[in-house]
Design a protein around this nucleic acid. Sequence first.
DNA 1: CTGAAAGCGCTTACAG
DNA 2: CTGAAAGCGCTTACAG
Lengths: 342, 342
Amino acid sequence: MKTVTMADVANQANVSKSTVSQYLNKRYDYMGEKTKIRIAQAIEELGYQPNIVARSLKQKSTKTIGVIVANILHTFSTEVSRAIEDACNMEDFHTIICNADDDPAKEKKYIEMLRAKQVDGLIIFPTGNNRELYRKMLDEKYPLVFMDRPVAEIPVSSVMLNNEKASGLAVNHLINNGHRRLAMITASTTENVSPRVERMEGFKKALHSHKLPVSEDYMKSVEPDQVNGTLEDMWKLDEPPEAILAGNDLVLKEILQFVKQKDLNIPRDLSIIGIDDVPYASFYNPPLTTIAQPTFQMGTTAAQVLLNKINKKQPADNLPDDRFEPELKIRESVADKGGVQS
Amino acid sequence: MKTVTMADVANQANVSKSTVSQYLNKRYDYMGEKTKIRIAQAIEELGYQPNIVARSLKQKSTKTIGVIVANILHTFSTEVSRAIEDACNMEDFHTIICNADDDPAKEKKYIEMLRAKQVDGLIIFPTGNNRELYRKMLDEKYPLVFMDRPVAEIPVSSVMLNNEKASGLAVNHLINNGHRRLAMITASTTENVSPRVERMEGFKKALHSHKLPVSEDYMKSVEPDQVNGTLEDMWKLDEPPEAILAGNDLVLKEILQFVKQKDLNIPRDLSIIGIDDVPYASFYNPPLTTIAQPTFQMGTTAAQVLLNKINKKQPADNLPDDRFEPELKIRESVADKGGVQS
DNA sequence: CTGAAAGCGCTTACAG
DNA sequence: CTGAAAGCGCTTACAG
């Protein structure tokens, strides 16, 4: 299994390595027709495949980018990653996806590993706790874009959802259908993960603007494994909520499990809206009303912004953060209690 | 952003590049204590990060493997991929995942791309239509393992499910619960994709062994977008099936959609079992009885077999194909019609 | 139109 | 205990 190299091709074709290289890179400008043919034949006969590692070393570009996802278990992450991959493929870039598992230490390890592998740029769903590292990359002008979350004081372009609006859309829909006692559960906000904070804020604001009371008992930010206990507590209240907004897909799953365990009927006993249009939403019983994120657009945009930075088409992080619009997908998990349609 | 190289570190520490390299590779055998410290300091001060691309070129090993999945939309693929990643991480190997999208042309492109990138080995969920390429890799003794499917006449170790047993488990469970009219739908077998064929075979055999008639009207292998039409046809029969076995997760999804559209009740009107333990199985309404594949084990095994080949611990493809055992997860989508429990 | 030469950033016998 | 030198497989000015 001796590998055939460019030198072998050059020999076989009776030209120099330089010429073979030109040929491979389609710089045919002054190349003789017969030379081309000889080279093509030699490549064919020897079954030559260029060694990209060698090329990368010389060119100082690997034509690949890294993406570090905070947590691959979210459908959001997988969908966005796929969109990034597709967009990169269009431009002949490859993609290496890593899962930080919500662990800043892992995130750091992956950033270093990917940079050691000389990826040309990074799209990071930041855990938020590697500020020095982010800062260093910014200072070095290393091509970087954040996804889903910004990082305070690190002015790097970030591709994000309009999170407040996402909650607003849900609250409006619920209120328009006659609901009054609305609850919301998000994942833990202890790390100050901004989408969770913003979604909760949006929830409060929307309640306010409808002149509804905002009760702390109805608003919880907890770890997934505590969602069940949290719901138990709510159900012990004199007035349990009539509707609940799940801050993301993992929370939704826990809520659905609780509903089953309590043998509640959706939407008769409880209306549900989930942020993230989970894959089973349309064929669940009942079909689930959700707030969809435009994952495809978001991934595509992130890839384009990064590729522009890599290609120096865009000098700095001067553009405003992109905020993408959520979309309400009305299905059947919200009861019609005779509210006003807006 | 001038990158700092090993030469810079050597200068700073007043040693040669060789010594720095030794240090980095922890070959401390004869290294002076003060030398070590000087090098460590220099690395620290300069913020030096080794360039893995350069190392790979020299060492002719990238410490990364590629995995080419037939279709990333299957939960099976994503779960197995994650297991492979984890197993590789343990051994300090990286993983690049590519999605062939059931398209042999894409598969070929990825094989070539990954080999050009000098990955040390490949795990392929084969589409089956690149036999010459597979053959070539076998001949070159390039480290390779197949997942999910074998390839006829290409004796490369393949990690697979015991597919016949998977169907058998489902049929037995259904019959034990008093069902008689059993149907099965799998994805298209036109490409001779063996798991689909084997699952259908297993279904037939199990029926036989229970002395039940095998009706062609109840056994269909079609593309996902034809599942709905196929079911419509079955429901026009004088006796539609009482129970249906979904050959994989994508087929299951289509069946569930059909059930909803026809407003059928599971399991009163129709019992369902799906091969692949889909993530929503436990909290669907009703919870879905499934046949689970040991995806974690399968991925881990594939990674280990490949890593062994790469490390030459294992000379050839002499080991028998691994067949992994499916597991019946009894939940609530199968009616109890008073059969005999086995 | 094509080739000789230098160099990308490492590693690795080998010499001392 | 450490260094000089060659080489991994390419690309790219530059010369002719």
